[in-house]
Design a protein around this nucleic acid. Sequence first.
DNA 1: ATTTGTTTAAAACAAATGTTTAAAACAAAT
DNA 2: ATTTGTTTTAAACATTTGTTTTAAACAAAT
Lengths: 201, 201
Amino acid sequence: MSEKASTQEKIIESATELFLEKGFHRTSVREIASRAKINISLMNYYFRSKEMLFETIINLLIGDPSSSLKTILDSDLELNEKIKQYICRYIDMLISNPLLVSFVLAVLNHSPDKITKLKVTDSLYTTEKFANQLNAESSKGNIRKTDPEQFYLNMLSLIAFPFAIKSLINEKNAYNGIEFSKFIELRKEIIYNTLISSLKP
Amino acid sequence: MSEKASTQEKIIESATELFLEKGFHRTSVREIASRAKINISLMNYYFRSKEMLFETIINLLIGDPSSSLKTILDSDLELNEKIKQYICRYIDMLISNPLLVSFVLAVLNHSPDKITKLKVTDSLYTTEKFANQLNAESSKGNIRKTDPEQFYLNMLSLIAFPFAIKSLINEKNAYNGIEFSKFIELRKEIIYNTLISSLKP
DNA sequence: ATTTGTTTAAAACAAATGTTTAAAACAAAT
DNA sequence: ATTTGTTTTAAACATTTGTTTTAAACAAAT
C-alpha cells in the first residue's frame, strides 16, 4: 500500500484486492476498512454504499484493459499480425492480473447488468471492424469461410478460460504461480497456431 | 417440484436450483426452506449445516456428468472420433444444464479445495490415457507434435467458456435461451474442425 | 481568534444471517 | 393404550451485516 495515499485511494486499493480475491458478498465493509486502516463509516462517506464502491471498482478493473485491447482489434493491422498481437497483449494483461477473469465471470454471472450496461461494454466483447476484416479476407479467398462471431469466441475462450480454472491446472500439475505463468506464456504461440490453421482454406 | 418428494429431496431440489442461480452466499437458508415449503430447521436436521448441504449438492452436480465424460476420454475410440464424441456429449450436457459451468467456476474460484479434494476430481480434469493416445499418434507422424496438456485445455476452453459468458453473448446478439443453444450447437462442428486442423502435421 | 467546510471517529441502528432449542405431532411397535 | 423413535414446528439465539448518527478533530479562510 502506497504511503501518501489519500483515504479514498486506500479504500479503493484495499477493496479492489478483496473483491478480486473473494468477490462482493464474501467481502465485508469492516474487512475493507480494517485493511485500509480507516474507520468503517468512511467507506459510506466516500462511496455512499458498498454497492457503489463495487461498481466504481468494476469500472476501474475492466475499463482500462478492455479499451486498450479494443484498439488492437480496431486497428489496420494485417489479419495474422492483428491476431498475434491481440493474443499476446491479452495474455500479458491477464498474467499481470490473473484474478481478473474470475472476477468478471463472477459479476457477469450474478448481476450481468453491472457489466452489460457498462460504458465499456462493447470494448469487452465487440468485433465489428474485426468481423468485417474476416469477411473481407474470406471473400478474397485468403481464408476459409468463417463466422466472425464464432471465431472471436474461439479466440477469447482459448485466451481467457485457462485463467478461470487456474487452481485446477495448478493443482493437477503441481504448479506454483510462476510455473502457471510459464505454461500460459507457451499458449501465446499455441493459440496463434491453432487459430491460424483453423482459417487455412 | 415432484409431488411425493421426501423432505430431504425437496430441500436438495430447491437448494440446487438456488445455488445454481445465485451461488452459495447469495442464497439464504430461509429462501431454500421457503421454496421447498419446509421449516427452516429441517435443513439443519437433515444436512447439519448450509455448508454440508452445499457440498452434497456439489457432488451431485459434478459427479455424474464428469465421470460420464471421462468414460469417453478413456475409451479405445480412434482419435478423431473420440474428439468428436467428447465435444458432442460435453456440449449436450452443458446445454441441458447451462448454469453448471458458472457454478463450478464460482466454487473453484472461492474455495478450490471443495473441488480439487473431490472424489471426482480427476474425472473433471485428467487426461492420462488421452495424453498417451496423442503422444502415440504424434510419434507415428499422424499428427503434429502436440502437448497433450495444452491440447486438452484448448478443447475444454472452446467447449466450456461460451457458457461462462452466456449473458454477454445473449446481450450482444439479442439471443434468447433457444437461440443461444442453436449458436452453441453450431460450435460442435466448429470446435471439431478447429482442433483437428490444429493437429494436422 | 473565530468561523467555515471538510474529514475522521466511536457508537448505535435495524435487519438479516446460520444455527440451536424445546416442545409438539406423528407413526410404528410393544 | 403406551412407549418408542422419528419428523416437524415455532421461537429464540448469538453474530454479523451494511448503514446512520452524532460529535469530535482538523485545516483553511476571514
